[in-house]
Every structure is written in C-alpha cells, then in structure tokens.
C-alpha cells in the first residue's frame, strides 16, 4: 500500500490507460453477473473469465490473488463453519463428533465465498489499475459532488498520517510511563491517554483544514476545471453502453426467473 495513489500499482499497460469509468463499469457488471446468475459456481466462472485475464494483462494478477486471499479467508472460514455445520436439515456428508457437515450448507458457503472473492478481486483490480484521483475526477464529471470526491481522496492520504500521529502520541505517553503491553485490562486502560489527545488534535486539524480549503476557493460556485486530463474514446463509450445493456439484460432475465413461477 506504499503507492502514491492509494492502491494504484504503476504499470504501463493498456488496462491502466483505459478511462476509469470503463474499468468501473466493467468491474460492476462482472460483480452483478456473478451474483445474479444462479448456480454455486457462477461467481467462480465470472472470476476466471472476467477478472483473472484482465488482471493478467494489467500485470497485477499476483497482487490481486495475494490480497484477495488475505481478505477472503476469514469470510470463507466463518461461512463454512456456520453454514456447513449448522444448516438445518439437508444431507449429512460427514459426522464430526456432535456436529454434522451438511452438503447444502457447504454448497451455500462455497457460493458465498465465491461472491466475496469476486467482489474483492474486482475492486482490487480496479484500484490497482486506476489512480483514485482520476477515478474521482471521472465520477465528478458525471455529477458526483466535489465534497464526496474530496472526502474519499483525502481519506486515502490522511489515514496514514493519522496512524503516524497516533504512534507519536503512544510513544510520548509510553515515555511518561504509560503501560501499553500486557493483559487486555492494561491495554484498555492505555487507550484513553491515546485517544483523547488524538481526537482533540484532530478537531483542531479539521478547523484549520476547513480554512485552508476555503482559501483555495473550495466552496466557490460555478464551473470547475481540472489539470488532469482523462482520455476517453468513442470505442470505450460504446463498450460501456454495451456492458450496461448486458447488465440490464441479466437483471431482466433474473427477474423473469423469479417472477415466472409466481405467475404460473
């Protein structure tokens, strides 16, 4: 996460050069299809067809795999335990002492895990190949309020600063003899002298930050311009429309599947 642009991984590939909205729409449509198409394995199929090849071309596949696994494993484990072992009824696959592993629960857990993996890897792919300032600019041009894009972008940069500040305060309190290691009780007690200066300091920071933003004409009405230039092409616009039409078709089809038995 050491990059300058949030999660962005600097690579010179065609995927990196695509317009941010093209990538955003692509990832969202992949997610939608993976979640909506019935079947235990559909998220995995979309993952293999939709996400993996693009990550490979963008040369970020190792990063995507590594961090997807890191994020998805806790979900997968809890899903398998909860759904696999505590599924009511169903076919018993194996008896584990007082618990019984159920086939239906296991399949449900596999599908849930697949959905999470698909969502995480999709967003990682988007963020590894797209500078967040470019993504926010693209969204602003589509009408996203500037204040929201400011919050998203500044959070990306301010959180690491916030962590450093917390560490400074922690060191300062330790040097005054505050115990921060040991039992949970000791650590809980250490929390107050850390949190209070951090919060109070942050309130002052926020006031100054608001002033600095006002000085830079942040609240000025009227058209804004941008130093960043986003390259869009007619081809990419067409692709985006096609993707969105495809997504709508899937939604319509899924709706029909849900509705048909109810009308019959």
């Amino acid at each position: 996460m050491s990059g300058t642009y949030g999660l962005y991984v600097v690579r010179q590939t065609g995927i990196h050069r695509l317009h941010p909205l093209t990538k955003l729409v692509y990832v969202l449509v992949c997610l939608l299809i993976g979640w909506l198409i019935p079947g235990v394995w559909s998220p995995y199929i979309v993952l293999l067809i939709g996400v993996v090849p693009v990550a490979l071309i963008a040369r970020v596949l190792p990063e995507v795999i590594k961090n997807t696994i890191k994020t998805a494993i806790p979900f997968a484990i809890s899903l398998i335990i909860v759904q696999g072992l505590f599924w009511t009824g169903g076919t018993i696959v194996r008896q584990l002492g007082p618990f019984s592993l159920k086939a239906e629960g296991l399949l449900f857990a596999i599908r849930g895990t697949g959905r999470i993996i698909l969502a995480v890897s999709g967003f990682l792919l988007l963020n590894y190949t797209t500078r967040s300032d470019e993504l926010m600019l693209a969204l602003s041009q589509k009408g996203l309020p500037n204040s929201i894009s400011y919050v998203v972008l500044s959070t990306l940069q301010v959180i690491p600063r916030f962590q450093r500040k917390a560490n400074t305060i922690l060191d300062a309190q330790r040097s005054r003899g505050l115990e921060t290691e040991g039992s949970y009780l000791i650590r809980m007690r250490a929390l107050m002298p850390l949190v209070v200066p951090l919060l109070l300091g942050s309130i002052v920071d926020i006031e100054e930050r608001a002033i600095a933003l006002e000085v830079r004409a942040f609240s000025r009405e009227g058209a804004k311009t941008s130093l960043l230039v986003l390259h869009d092409t007619r081809f990419q616009r067409a692709i985006r429309w096609l993707l969105m039409l495809g997504a709508m078709a899937v939604i319509g089809w899924r709706f029909y599947l849900w509705l048909a038995p109810r009308l019959a």
Binding site: S154, R216, A223, L227
Partner: peptide
C-alpha cells in the same frame, strides 16, 4: 488538501476550483 497526489496537482487545486 490531501486530495491531490502530486505537488503540481496540489498547486492546481485552487485554480481548478476557480475554473
């Protein structure tokens, strides 16, 4: 501002807001 990722873009922030 924290909303711009390079010195150059940071300087641009005020100008962008002024259009």
């Amino acid at each position: 501002t924290g909303a711009r990722f390079s010195v150059r873009d940071e300087v641009a922030f005020g100008l962008e807001n002024m259009g």
